[in-house]
Each structure stands twice: as C-alpha cells, then as structure tokens.
C-alpha cells in the first residue's frame, strides 16, 4: 500500500436536517495514508462529517455530495448491509467516552474479538491469540487476565485503549477518532494520543482525528483542517500553525491557558468579525 492511495475523497459534502437547515455546508477534502486533524468548536459540523464517513448518521439527516468516495467505494448510495462489510474492517472509529461505548454486560475479550467474529473466519484459538496480541499492542499489561474483566473495572484511559484495540483488530486502513481524549484526565490524554499516533504510523494507516483542542492534536498530525459553522475555513500543515493567518485558527491555537499567560486575558474569538470573513 502506498501513500498515494486516496482513502477519502469528498467534494461538496452537505449534511442537513429534513427541514432544510444545513449543518455542513458543502465541504471538499481528501486524505490518503496520513494523519489529519479536523478541528472546530462544538456545532461546527466536525462530528457529523466524521460520522458520514462511517455511515452512522441518524436517518433524519439528509446527506448529499457531488462526489463521495471512501477507499474507492461510492458509499453515498450504500445500504446498511454494504456499510457493515466496510465498517469495523476497513474503516473503524474510536468514540469519545469509553464508559458509554463499551457494553457493560460483556467482558473485554468478547468485545475485542467481536470484529474478528464478524469479518474474519478463524479458529477460536487464533482469535484468542489475536485478541491478546492486540491488548498488548495498545499497552495494556497482562492481557490474559484483562480479557476476562468487565468495563466497569477499568479506568477511563484503559477503557480508551480497549476501544482502540477493538478499532484496530482487523487492521483497517482508516481510523476515525472522534474526540478520543476529551472524557479522559489531562495526564492520560497525551499518552492515549501518542499511542494512537504510534499505532497508526506502524500500520501505515490513515487517521482522521477530531478535536476542539488544536494545540493538543497538532503534535500528532501532519495536516490540520479547521471547521467553523459547517464550512472548512482553513487548511494548513501542522508545522505552519504557529504562523497561521486565519484569525479563527490563530485564536484556537493560542487560547489554551498556561502558566506564562497568567495575569493577561486569554485570546478569544471575535465572532462578529468571523461572520464577515465567511
């Protein structure tokens, strides 16, 4: 697999409600086997965009696009059964809060093995080995014991590692991570992001990382796309962030508090000015 293959190619993506309100207002983007961050405030449409790439939008939403290809498949016309063959096998997703994303009544081993059961035929012994290998790969100690544990026995960080194991067990080509660290403690956030980064790089996968914290994700991505009210307003390489020219990107980049900014107000968005820029 080379880096030139296009994983996602979207042109004129529009997502709206039944009544005609547009939430995503015609965005174009494409990505290959690379790490891309999609950044914006809540309500900017970033999560909707990500969910449309998984075919996971609610039925009440209307999706339209001039061109919508995922791993070369014209997925816009796909039925759920066709999506099911793609999801969890070639594209997978890590959600925000492992507390809600893991099934509380099933043990970890069974949940990690589920994508294998659905998409691959292998002996139960091979499956078990793969599960333990995967739990080890996401940095969880003692996989044999962990396999038999239940979600409530894990901390948030461990839960998110388990989610990652589930997402990566079928060696997908594209991983979508929707705010994977915002339910976690500050100290654990960087660990989980670094883990995602190294696993994705190792496997030469594509990563679409969604976040509202530009500074935090910048270290783990090559490119950054910035969304504001359903529009992609800025698009730049991660190294160029400190010198961003768009005022929205500038503010997102510099609004994070730290000890050096004590005593001075934090930069905030001039929303009226942004309206004129749109």
């Amino acid at each position: 697999m080379t880096n030139n293959t296009s994983l996602v190619d979207v042109r004129g993506l529009r997502i709206g409600l039944d009544d005609g309100t547009e939430l995503v207002k015609g965005i174009d983007f494409s990505m290959g086997h690379e790490r891309v961050a999609l950044v914006g405030e809540s309500g900017s449409g970033k999560s909707l965009t990500a969910r449309s790439l998984m075919g996971l939008l609610a039925d009440s939403l209307v999706v339209e696009a001039d061109h919508f290809q995922l791993l070369g498949h014209p997925v816009l016309s796909y039925r759920q059964s066709q999506w099911n063959r793609l999801r969890g096998q070639q594209v997978s997703m890590v959600l925000q809060d492992p507390k809600y994303a893991l099934n509380p009544t099933q043990n970890i081993g069974r949940q990690v093995a589920e994508p294998l059961v659905l998409h691959q035929s292998m002996s139960s012994k091979a499956r078990l080995e793969k599960v333990e290998y995967m739990l080890d790969a996401v940095g969880l100690a003692n996989p044999a014991k962990l396999r038999k544990m239940y979600p409530h026995q894990l901390s948030g960080g461990m839960g998110q590692r388990v989610m990652l194991a589930i997402a990566l067990i079928n060696d997908p080509q594209l991983l979508i991570a929707d705010e994977p660290t915002s339910a976690l403690d500050h100290a654990v956030r960087d660990q989980v992001l670094a883990l995602i980064h190294s696993l994705v790089e190792e496997r030469n996968m594509g990563l679409l990382l969604i976040s509202h914290d530009l500074q935090q994700v910048a270290d783990y991505c090559e490119r950054v796309m910035v969304m504001y009210q359903g529009i992609l307003i800025d698009h730049l390489p991660a190294e160029a962030l400190p010198n961003a020219t768009h005022p929205y990107t500038q503010t997102l980049w510099s609004c994070r508090p730290n000890i050096t900014k004590r005593g001075q107000p934090l930069p905030t968005l001039d929303r009226q000015h942004l309206e004129t820029l749109k």
């Binding site: 809540s42 509202h212 609004c255 508090p257 934090l266 930069p267 905030t268």
Partner: peptide, 14 residues
Amino acid sequence: LDMSVQAEILNLLN
C-alpha cells in the same frame, strides 16, 4: 467546554 469557550469563561472569572 470547547477550548475557545474555556478561554472566554476563564477570562470572565478573572
């Protein structure tokens, strides 16, 4: 809250 909104709230509290 979003990082950008956090900045607004922290400024307000200060």
